[in-house]
Amino acid sequence: MSAVSNEIEIIDDPGAPAHVPRAADLNPRSEKRAEQQVAILFGLSGVGSLLLIYSYVFVADDIFIFIPIMGNQNAHQLGLGIGMAMSLFFLGMAAVHWAKTLMPETEIVNHRHEFRSSDEDRADFVKTVKDGVAGVQLGRRKLIKRSLAASLGLFALPPVLLLRDLGPLPKKQLEMTSWKAGTRLVTDPGNRPILASDLEVGSVVQTLPAIAEGTERLLSDIAKDPVLLIRLRPEDFQLTPEKFAMTHEGIIAFSKICSHMGCAVALYEQQTKHLLCPCHQSTFDVTRGAKVIFGPAARPLPQLDITVDAEGYLVARAPFNEPVGPSFWERNSQ
């Protein structure tokens, strides 16, 4: 095995094989049969079109028929679709079959030419371009050259500037959520405040910050605010004292927005006490303050400091002490 040179005697090209006529070229009966086949295919296409029209006009959209493998199917939708598929498919099949069996099929040889232009043409081209460029006199007219460059530079700015109003500046929006000290945690959906005693050990609740009566939540708030409440036995925690102080009677609250790419992390496994994000499978250990134990997420889920208010309802003791959700350049993660 080695690199081989091309300077060897190669085997001769025997040339294109002899033309073999088709059955339809030789036998009138085959020709007739091919013609009939094409006609049948066109006919099937027509049947498809009729099926489509029939299904559109006469088949109600609440009729269901059972078809093996596929299950209960909507007859209207299926009729339209199969009709359309037939009408298109067989039209194409007919045309191709026609071309294959009956149209002249001798192969034709075209010749190629090299794409490179002739030397004269190239020389002419170079001369034309040179003359043209010389006529512009950019080399001589320094003032024009400089002012042109300056104006072109400035000219590029307005188009970019015009896109400025696409959206507001980020400011501190990504760092903030609606949680404030004393905000009640309410069920999502339902907006009911939650007593600590409402949660049994092993239970989980999806919550949002309470909002004033009659106001609407913005989706951009729901993209940052959701909090997952989980109740464990207090002795199950292996938290630092600060983090443990943020829990309340075994109830711990985490941002439900993944610290990786912002999906809702809500797959809570009660026995292992792990939280799993279904998007990229980052796994967080609830007992250790949502520490990442598997997957691509690099930071634990932010923990919300919770307590109860005078009426015994769960509230945030303080806002989140770090931005929730995916990382961004301006985020101070230290």
Partner: peptide, 10 residues
Amino acid sequence: GGFFFIVFGI
């Protein structure tokens, strides 16, 4: 041309 209809049909 026929193949276009076949692709559409499928």
